[in-house]
Amino acid sequence: MSGRNIGEPILVVEDISLSFGGVRALQNVSFDVREHEIRAIIGPNGAGKSSMLNVVNGVYHPQVGTVTFKGETRHHVDPHHAASQGVARTFQNIALFRGMTVLDNIMTGRNLKMRTNFLQQALWVGAAKREEMAHRRKVEEVIDFLEIQHIRKTPVGRLPYGLQKRVELGRALAAEPELFLLDEPMAGMNTEEKQDMCRFILDVNDQFGTTIVLIEHDMGVVMDLSDRVVVLDYGRKIADGKPDEVRSDQAVIDAYLGVAH
């Protein structure tokens, strides 16, 4: 972890409140994420972790609060805008394009970098063909990185769960994001698959300097990987700090183990 220079905050969420009808998913949540760091969001089920990520990349629009990414403050984030600013994410339940091959799935991750229009693509000459091949080369780098060469032409619907998770990581990586939102990347994996995934996350962070926000339930993983941890419970932030500090925080222990009322 020594190679990285953790810099200034790249993402600041301030005073976010989000509710669906009467359900308050998030209440006055604020925290920041510094450049190149790995930031974990933890909390019991229903604490609002995934909602928080959805606010950051514009799938949900909070009633109150702002999201500042790379110095640009917004109340209403649009998913397309977030993606073009360099935010990529994976989903808790795999959200791959099941009918497409691994290669095509990862290629879609580069859609924002493609410049040719559909007429050029239909003719498949000159610029469109060159562009397609240049992006294919980049995608092959991602495929090599994730060690999934052998399945590049397989439709993702036929792959086992662990590999699908890896392909989804690849699709997000192909966009060369600056901020990477990972929603439970290790859910439902066995120890070996978890180790692989941890290695990939650390490598992404280390080699590409990508800032990572991670939701994870496996405490061992969270404590090992993350630089700082935010703890949510019932939509409120109850703790924020280094893994050791959070682990010994009484509010966190109460949230996880329950308290006698």
Binding site: V59, A83, A95, M107, T108, F118, A122
Partner: peptide, 26 residues
Amino acid sequence: NLMRSQTGRAFMAVRDMDVAAEVIGI
């Protein structure tokens, strides 16, 4: 040609999982 290029992939992405397609910028 169109269906094996970015446009075709965007179509299939919308077909297979529209939320994910939007999040990656389609």
